[in-house]
Design a protein around this nucleic acid. Sequence first.
DNA 1: GATTAGCAGTCACATACCGCGAGTGCCAGT
DNA 2: ACTGGCACTCGCGGTATGTGACTGCTAATC
Lengths: 340, 340
Amino acid sequence: MVSDRSLEVLRVIVQDYVASREPVGSKSIVDRHSFGVSAATIRNDMALLEEEELIAAPHTSSGRIPTDKGYRLFVDHLADLRPLSAAQRQAIETFLGQSADLDEVLARSVRLLSQLTHQVALVQYPSLSRAKVRHIELVPLSETRLLSVLITDAGRVEQRVVDLPRPLAEPVLIELRARLNSALIGLGMTEAASSLTGGSSLGPFEQQEAVDLITGTLRDQVGANRQDRLVMAGAANLVRTEEDFTGSIYPVLEAIEEQVVLLRLFGEMASDQHGVSVSIGRENAPFGLAETSVLTSGYSSQGGNLARLGVLGPTRMDYSNNMAAVRAVARYLSRLLGEN
Amino acid sequence: MVSDRSLEVLRVIVQDYVASREPVGSKSIVDRHSFGVSAATIRNDMALLEEEELIAAPHTSSGRIPTDKGYRLFVDHLADLRPLSAAQRQAIETFLGQSADLDEVLARSVRLLSQLTHQVALVQYPSLSRAKVRHIELVPLSETRLLSVLITDAGRVEQRVVDLPRPLAEPVLIELRARLNSALIGLGMTEAASSLTGGSSLGPFEQQEAVDLITGTLRDQVGANRQDRLVMAGAANLVRTEEDFTGSIYPVLEAIEEQVVLLRLFGEMASDQHGVSVSIGRENAPFGLAETSVLTSGYSSQGGNLARLGVLGPTRMDYSNNMAAVRAVARYLSRLLGEN
DNA sequence: GATTAGCAGTCACATACCGCGAGTGCCAGT
DNA sequence: ACTGGCACTCGCGGTATGTGACTGCTAATC
């Protein structure tokens, strides 16, 4: 089997390769690190590692680079999750310190994460599922058009425009708003949805068809689990690391812009709720991201609503630093949004 | 001066070059188009155009490509703004047809625009400046934290989290909400802001410091002209057109992600309110986008609030098609959001 | 005067070739 | 188990060469 020293060799191969993007050879290893053995010995270890498919040679006479499997072993057993530097910690403070609304906080978080890791950063909107209805507001926009606003106690606001076939009388609107609020405030999302589904539990109205339209929209809104939205930043970083991809990065960028793909990927990684989970290289092949690695962590907002955030980049990335950054931002965000 | 035929030559040079990305020579012009003259004659015309700096040769013995000035002339006088194809019109219908909330509509618009033009698309959020206060809601999130929600009659919702030094008593909160609503509903944004600035126009409160904090936040909110937010889509298209840039596209992508830059650019292009305005190549140099062109058009939402949308791509782009697409989407969006 | 044919000249690009050097694998010796 | 030595491999950068697409110019033609 692979000896302790061999693993140590794997570690430095990963580290040096990540740092320099050059295949690393036995010579440079003994030069840069103090193993106390000769290059030939290192070569034997490398032969071993190659047999285990932890490293590979791009061509016959060149240094070695880690395989996906090698990275996996590194991440699982070898990476030291060193805490963030003071400067990085400082960056989090200044970026997220000031209060702002949810949209703004998430937008800042994603930029922050992308700057800390120099990768593409992703933040998923928190789920609404455990939130409760706090208030409902109906705002007339024009004769036949109104805005239905749903405010939840999780600090989320859901708005939608309703087109009416015919103008709705002002008093009806006011009455409807009052009844909706008294019927729904305090209910959880699922209860509210079923309450709205149960026909005219609000009693009879003059303009029933318009009212039905509005309640229908509202039912959509409480049902619409906006977890299916995510924000992204740092696409430029992908271009910077273009040389790490064999082909063009075009399909990668395409996959990233197709949020559905990422949301599925996030879903699959959800097992590990709070620690950082890592998906490496070909593990992401089903998503068209066979040459990228994705690091995510869950975070929780008010009321225990869960979502994930993370970074995406070429398999050749600084896992130690990036895992630490993802973890730190997730924790900070949980603290910022969560119940204290 | 440049003769009519010379201009015709310029037009086909632009069209062919945009279509093929190959410098176009006199031979290929007479082959592909029926000018009824020989290649030598075309060469004379091209010499003329070159003298006027409308076209240039990348190297001594090669075809010509349009200069920024050439594109400018093309856009101003030569481009035929052909209407969209049936398929494109259809795409707009299906993409924007279904009703949804403002966020959703803008998100779809930007994706649509990017698909129609195969370029990076940008949509700016509508200004709040002419909107009126419709409702104010204060939602407690925890003991010392609450969400302040501002709903305007333009269909925009502005939310913000307030951190309180000490818990706020429930009755005070309810009272505050009532007084705020009765004081502010119906006011324009600027009036509301000044009304909030004028000290305790709401009368005395028990927990004055907390109340001040809340009204302060609210003042921020009505003042915060969220025009400074924009959504983007289609970054992958920049990568696809990477060969059209001399250096890396990294700085371009960076400039794009730095929204401030784009907002300034949008601001400068605002002169022409509704037609499509075009900014070509070096005209964008101050923004670090010397090799890109930007097409924008204004659009209006409820209450005459103005914002802009547009596309950005390499100077070598299909101006005719893209201008038509920008105009069409802007119009559709105005119709969708505006008062009918 | 505008247009044309012909021709010499230019220059990017593709191809082939060559030498260098980093790095390996193996083997015999400690 | 480790080391020094050595033959071998192969990617990479640099140079030389041939090819072809174009142009610019000149002199002849409508």
